[in-house]
Design a protein around this nucleic acid. Structure first.
Lengths: 256, 256
DNA sequence: CGACCTGTTGAAATATATCAAACATGGTGG
DNA sequence: CCACCATGTTTGATATATTTCAACAGGTCG
């Protein structure tokens, strides 16, 4: 399961490692925000920057979990694979997210870049060392894990009880949130991955994803722009769907 | 959303609190295993035992997360609720599991007892205090969270790509594992909850759950016994389904 | 006994998957 | 520059797994 060349190793050629990765570590959302320069330096000391291209494998499900990655730019997807080839995406990750931290000996899922991306790779053992000497980081890592858990539970809810339209709407709203959290302004979002990737995330086929997107477009709720651009024209309609209030357009629980 | 009496408060009348809860804390799987008597005493000091009856609410989604619970005996389910009444179960929990620990200010899901159960309730603030003075516990809590995350990801995979039969088989296999991990011998399992509860967990309707169980019974893979008892007669068949190898009974990838 | 809850099973309805074709796009090489 | 190919998207027709609606049976409990 695990015999593949992991990633194209390309250390950043211009800057010193510590330099580069202090920057990248600082961008890890939530994790390093409360850290002082010393702690940042500690993390940076054992890390290295990496560039990957679209569709490159970052690590495979089942690989020994010897490294931890921070996504500096771009997007990645975490996937579980079934023996017969069925695939589900656990989630998408964006700039600043931490990927691959697990107490298990092997990664419980694989990770691949959705587009060209840059990562910061650190040794798992080194990170553990830093954690043990910085209880504050360990605590924020626990928070991070709990937040990730809550997000995964949202996905469980969506997969268990949402219709196809509700799932796609939920994704678009969440994507808008991820853009906003990273300071990207404007209503034009960058759709990461193909329809098939979205299908894996939402438990749908690529055809169904395409049909739903077309339906939203026909209703004037979104517009598609060149090269993976989506504009949310009626975000409140999408949000209403994502809220899971049922088929009613207005409030159908209180008619008069 | 949060105006309901939480639970029937019934402090254990016979034993002293510290006594009872040292026992119950010790049973929290993984969390307290590596602890010494002092730490256990610390935890026990701020905790209290509670008895709940079938269907009792332990806490509601949206309630302030001021308490953390350890399930001493019985089973509970964690559920998310949608505005229009649709419901999904995030997971079932059994004796020794920790429930309701979240860094968020409010519980992101509700918890109810599936049958009669006993819990150990501790103050969130007290637990945090113990955590801060015992880095070892904090570390095992992080492990716990990561393991829970991995389990939730399994559920995502199942909901996204498994058929109804595969989902029910997965649940039965997992239930057998939970029984085994708690030292219960024999192949007769105790089905927690109703068909509707199972449906919420597996993203199916109660009728579909019933049909699948009937199908397994007709095939001789399981047998139903009085009062929620299930016997796994052909566990390997169920495990094959749960593995997600597709429709092939033998190995269909290598025909010659 | 009757009301109620849980489980089972059947028939019909439907959302989504599957299969299939056409269209767009971008790169590559002659 | 254009033909060509691989990849992704859209749309249609059909199939099917699961839901929905409905009836009934067996308990339990007041």
């Amino acid at each position: 399961v695990s015999t593949r060349t992991a990633i194209a190793k390309e250390a950043a050629p211009t800057a010193r490692v510590a330099d580069v990765c202090a920057t990248c570590a600082a961008r890890v959302v939530g994790l390093c925000a409360p850290l002082d320069a010393v702690a940042l330096g500690q993390i940076a000391g054992g890390s290295e920057r990496i560039a990957v291209r679209a569709r490159d494998v970052i690590f495979l499900q089942g690989d020994p979990s010897a490294q931890v990655f921070a996504l500096v730019s771009g997007a990645a997807r975490l996937t579980r694979l079934l023996p017969d080839g069925r695939r589900a995406a656990i989630g998408f990750r964006f700039a600043g997210d931490l990927i691959g931290y697990t107490p298990a000996a092997e990664y419980p899922f694989g990770a691949e870049a959705l587009g060209d991306a840059t990562l910061c790779r650190m040794d798992r053992g080194h990170l553990d060392l830093v954690l043990r000497t910085n209880p504050a980081i360990e605590r924020s890592l626990l928070d991070l894990c709990a937040r990730e858990l809550a997000a995964t539970q949202d996905q469980v809810m969506a997969l268990a009880r949402f219709t196809a339209e509700e799932r796609v709407a939920t994704f678009l709203v969440a994507l808008a949130g991820a853009h906003a959290a990273r300071g990207r302004i404007g209503r034009v979002l960058d759709l990461p991955g193909t329809r098939a990737d979205l299908g894996d995330l939402l438990g749908l086929t690529l055809e169904t994803v395409s049909r739903v997107i077309s339906a939203f477009r026909r209703r004037g709720w979104i517009a598609l722009h060149a090269q993976s651009g989506v504009e949310l024209i009626e975000p409140q309609q999408l949000r209403a769907l994502a809220r899971g209030e049922g088929a009613c357009v207005g409030g159908c629980t209180a008619p008069a």
